[in-house]
């Protein structure tokens, strides 16, 4: 498929410490190195041939970026960015230097916290107690048990669980956004009702998690929250208007 190329993990400011012992994509795992041009640098390695979305390569991509993010802002690449060769990377670094520096500046001292909201499947008792429609169907299924009644009841439960979770997530979003510099809706993930990423100051991560804990407890009958982070700023690396344009391109 592709000829060997240069796999790009992310862009950092020049002088950004690169931990030793990083292991990159491919098998055997390539050793990431730094290409510095002017004030920015790209962390790259040889690209595996062919490059596919293997679990171990996805993990390697993530691990490299997590390690880099510990020492300061990183512009994470989407998985699978391969340049024809190192010179092409250098050209892009040079051409994009201004923009990249602006982005690094914007992300300095900040991390991404991802919050996923899921239906509270453990809170069926609350659901039955609080939702008349479900209660009715449950009583109907008790009166005249059978496949049809059960399907209707189950369907109502699933729908209602999702609706309750989505409503709760809408209430939760502004509370978390208040602790964040920016908020971005993530790609839809099966099983979740809302996928949100927040740009959070590193020193506020603990506070942010505490807020999620608090909200999680307050809304436990309606929504389940899962937090991932601190992460490299996957959702905030592109400038807002650039991100919007990219979304349009991907969509079309």
């Amino acid at each position: 498929m592709t000829a060997a190329g240069t796999y790009v993990y992310g862009i950092v400011a020049c002088g950004h410490p690169v931990p030793s012992g990083l292991r990159g994509v491919g098998m055997p795992q390539a050793v990431p190195e730094v290409l510095t041009v002017g004030a920015t640098a790209a962390v790259v390695s040889a690209a595996p041939v062919p490059l596919r979305a293997r679990r171990r390569d996805l993990l390697a991509h993530q691990e490299v970026l997590l390690a880099l993010a510990l020492d300061g802002p990183v512009l994470p690449m989407r998985f699978g960015m391969v340049a024809p060769d190192a010179d092409a990377v250098r050209e892009q670094l040079e051409a994009g230097q201004e923009r990249n520096l602006r982005a690094l500046d914007r992300l300095a001292g900040r991390v991404e916290m991802n919050v996923k909201a899921l239906p509270a499947t453990g809170a069926l008792a609350a659901l039955v107690a609080e939702e008349p429609r479900v209660r009715q169907l449950r009583e109907a299924a008790h009166r005249r048990p059978g496949y049809e009644a059960n399907v209707r009841l189950g369907e109502a439960v699933v729908r209602t669980l999702e609706r309750r979770a989505a409503d709760a997530a809408q209430e939760i979003q502004p509370e978390l956004a208040a602790l964040a510099g920016a908020c971005s809706t993530g790609p839809h993930v099966d099983g979740t009702v809302l996928n949100l990423s927040f740009l959070v100051a590193r020193e506020q991560v603990v506070e942010f998690r505490a807020a999620v804990d608090r909200l999680s407890a307050r809304y436990r009958d309606r929504v389940e929250l899962r937090v991932a982070g601190p992460l490299p700023c996957y959702s905030f690396a592109a400038e807002p208007e650039v991100a919007a344009a990219a979304a349009v391109r991907t969509g079309g």
Binding site: Q62, M77, M81, A123, V227, A228
Partner: peptide
């Protein structure tokens, strides 16, 4: 619902996969 799980722990993609595949910078030339 009371337990909040923090990821990523080492070796987990559970809650970050879609970000790795769908977010992050894109350079058209690449």
């Amino acid at each position: 619902s009371s337990e909040v799980v923090y990821v990523p722990r080492a070796g987990t993609l559970y809650d970050t996969l879609e970000l790795i595949l769908d977010r992050g910078m894109v350079i058209d030339v690449f």
